[in-house]
Amino acid sequence: MTPQPKLSLRGLCKRYGALVVTDDLSLDVQRGTIHAVIGPNGAGKTSLLNQIFGSVTPDAGSVWLDGRDITDLPIHRRARLGLIRSFQIVSILPEFSVLENVALAAQAKAGSSFRFFRAAARETVLNDAARLALAKVGLTTVETTIAGGLSHGEKRQLELAIALAAQPGLLLLDEPLAGAGVEEAARLIGILRALAGECTIVLVEHDMDAVFALADTVTVLAEGRILASGSPAEIRQDAAVRAVYLGDTC
């Protein structure tokens, strides 16, 4: 008997006019693994994450989390089930301090936001959880900085800290290494590897070294369809993949 997958996609379809971005796509992501999704620009990777996340409704097909059909659930209900994402275009709250950005994630995780009187900034439980996540990504020294003023690299780290503080069961990462320097990338890879023990990760990434270093399974997407799926070693050997994808980038 195979264990229940963390995430299952069944016959997912999405088109914009004549453009098919997701083409009858079915996929299982096993619990506790890092599942990489790679593919050329415009392959439909972000669109796929959007449909799992809930910001885009598929034209057909279904999304299952822990054996439960979540296709019709709004974004916040999915998040409450532990489905958290980071965005390809950094999405932080520019007016909040670094700490408050992460404390909000801790607050959302901790339960009710319907508390009206106690100052949230003085809730040590939330601040402690936030500081823990900031320490993991190495942003401790800038916790009082207004997030809008961070460098691009720091914003990416903050984005990851927000996701960590939300304590995801399933984490969707859209190119978390984009624009990171060699040193930063190495650090982020270390964080992701440590995280893999605690949750399931769907990783969209162009950095092939990172993908092959981290992933348990790699799925190659092209024009909204799965070209190949398998272990990193299998994907490296796959002739079709080499022709379509690895061939023209490496």
Binding site: I75, I84, I92, L93, Q107, K109, I162
Partner: peptide, 17 residues
């Protein structure tokens, strides 16, 4: 805090639950 956050980026906040 939630209200101020939604003003800045609605989907970010919704994505946290």
């Amino acid at each position: 805090r939630a209200l101020r956050a939604i003003r800045q980026d609605r989907q970010r906040v919704q994505g946290l639950g």
